[in-house]
Design a protein around this nucleic acid. Structure first.
Lengths: 96, 96
DNA sequence: CAGAATCCATGCCGATACTG
DNA sequence: CAGTATCGGCATGGATTCTG
């Protein structure tokens, strides 16, 4: 299941699930810490695996929209669980 | 949530959840493909994060038992989901 | 059996600069 | 805006060997 490898895949998918239809810059802003290279690479991976779609708009400064596919949505419960678990995990660590 | 990074963490956790109390060799056999270095390293990671326990037995050739902790069990639903998803994903790819 | 140690290849991932 | 190109560091992870 190396489909979900990479530091950012889950985060990207999560962001895309919440806010449908996001542009490149939107993702950059939401994810915080990722660079253009990583983002575009991860995006390509996800597109290849048909978890997201990439749509180039015919506007002036050129915009692109990324969105979750039906297939990608099947990951929603997992991502939600993962997010919950992550939060709970952090809490339990506050015994520092 | 880089706690779950590394290629094998999920697989190890999954194996440990199904078959409670496994030795080093058991894991090697179950996981197939992993080497002693990776296995012991991942195991240490997981122990540090308190997801598994490591118990050294006082037997002749020395055996060690690894087991899931209560904390680790909270990951069970996620791992199960992930496994299901992985299977479904593979199926959907059989449109090659 | 359990694992640490060593050596080494791959590639992940980051910063910066450049293109359409 | 949305990337690609390039350079390079550092971590990941594999094969093999060695220890208690």
């Amino acid at each position: 299941m190396s489909v979900l490898s990479g530091k950012w895949k889950f985060h990207i998918l999560g962001t895309l699930i919440e806010g449908d239809k996001l542009g490149f810059m939107d993702l950059m802003r939401e994810i915080e810490g990722i660079g253009t290279k990583m983002l575009s690479k991860e995006l390509q991976d996800l597109e290849m695996n048909q978890l997201i779609t990439r749509t180039v708009m015919n506007t002036k400064p050129v915009t692109v929209q990324y969105a979750i596919t039906k297939h990608g949505k099947t990951l929603e419960p997992i991502i939600k669980e993962l997010a919950k678990w992550g939060a709970a995990y952090r809490d339990s660590m506050t015994a520092s």
